[in-house]
């Protein structure tokens, strides 16, 4: 009868100590976050792989690609942007390749909004067609430069 009691007491004490250690650990981790030493693990990353911010793209000498519909492109596009989308892939690619071969530089693709995915699809396709190219999707889409 004594042994199970001793074990139960030991388990109870260890649980209590674990709780104490866990509390101190959480407080310490909170302190690191408060001081800005550590990155917040649950925060959405500012930028994902293959994305670029407008502020960064603007200061680089990049080739802009407008992946929206031709109507949207004709209604207004970023200065110097080439229109390439799924419907004119072949002809658009030729124009792009000519410009890229003149002076190889990063290529930035944008679509209509921060939720659109066509620039990401086009970037994937372009990375296969042009493996040597440095290709990005613009974070925020065309909203990033129209703001």
């Amino acid at each position: 009868m004594g042994a199970p009691n001793t074990l139960a007491i030991a388990l109870h004490e260890i649980t209590r100590e674990l709780f104490f250690i866990a509390t101190l650990t959480v407080l310490g981790a909170g302190f690191s976050l408060y001081l800005g030493y550590a990155q917040v693990p649950w925060a959405e990353p500012e930028i994902a792989a293959g994305e670029i911010q407008f502020a960064d793209a603007r200061v680089l000498d990049v080739i802009w690609i407008d992946a929206r519909s031709i109507e949207e492109y004709e209604a207004g596009h970023y200065s110097g942007a080439i229109h390439v989308d799924e419907s004119n892939w072949d002809s658009g690619l030729v124009v792009l390749m000519n410009r890229w071969l003149e002076a190889p530089r990063p290529i930035v693709i944008y679509c209509g909004s921060k939720d659109c995915k066509s620039s990401y699809r086009l970037a994937d396709r372009l990375r296969q067609a042009l493996p040597e190219g440095e290709i990005y999707s613009l974070k925020g889409g065309s909203e990033a430069w129209t703001k």
């Binding site: 260890i14 100590e17 104490f20 250690i21 959480v26 690191s32 976050l33 693990p41």
Partner: peptide, 26 residues
């Protein structure tokens, strides 16, 4: 990121905890 945030503090606390009778065993 979770490991990088929590593990160092856990190491610190259990390291120092060896000197604190109340949490020595755990």
């Amino acid at each position: 990121l979770w490991v990088a945030l929590v593990l160092p503090w856990l190491e610190l606390i259990i390291g120092l905890g060896l000197m604190i009778p109340k949490i020595r065993r755990t």
